[in-house]
Amino acid sequence: MTEPAVHVHNLWKAFGQQLAVAGVDLTLPAGKFIGLVGPNGAGKTTTLSMVTGLLRPDQGTVEVVGHDVWKDPAEVKARIGVLPEGLRLFDRLSGRELLAYTGRLRGLPGTEVDKRATQLLDVLDLAGAQHKLVVDYSTGMRKKIGLAAALLHNPEVLFLDEPFEGVDPVSAQTIRGVLERYTGSGATVVFSSHVMELVESLCDWVAVIAAGRIRAQGPLAEVRGDAATLQEAFLELVGAHGRDAATDLDWLGGGSTR
């Protein structure tokens, strides 16, 4: 086997008292569609931020395509594309200006940037809004322009934090198409999500994270194990199986005021 796309060893991060990531070890193979799943607050965003160099870990090492993210940022940053969650874009630029800016910042020649931007805007169905300021985009459109900006320099590894959040089914299908073709050419996509059906239908490799720790990782079939669906296996792994909300919220429903 070739060298892994991402290798994370013993990664820790605490925000004050709150332990967000507690000793994550991950080895993600290259050329795969990889899903990072976990409940809210599991540490997915924190992990991805540390892996992409946007957040400094308290402890641990991260290697992307064989280069240490913190010791060798030049090698890593040129090879990865990122769509973070909860961070803004330069949203006072229009969609096209944003792509032109990012592409040229990445060192691509202007004509090449324009060509790629036009194609990406077309494929992602943003051509009609390309001259609108990103601040006036809808949530889904913002995800899509962020994805375009992340893809522009044809990275080897793409990190996407909840790329399908707020995206309509049609656009989701489009994004899937783009990403599948992209991994088909040997690139790696790592994305986080809570939507198990989506992960199950898209990914060949899954890592389950809960409370800052990896609960399982491996090929989809392996993680799913004997369970009928990934959803079942997931609930089992994060220890939420059998928890019944109905008993706690017995006042909810029926419309009576008491």
Partner: peptide, 15 residues
Amino acid sequence: QDTSAFWMVAMTVAS
């Protein structure tokens, strides 16, 4: 002045 969009700068500053 960049606000959190600074990540776009941080991603491309490697040296």
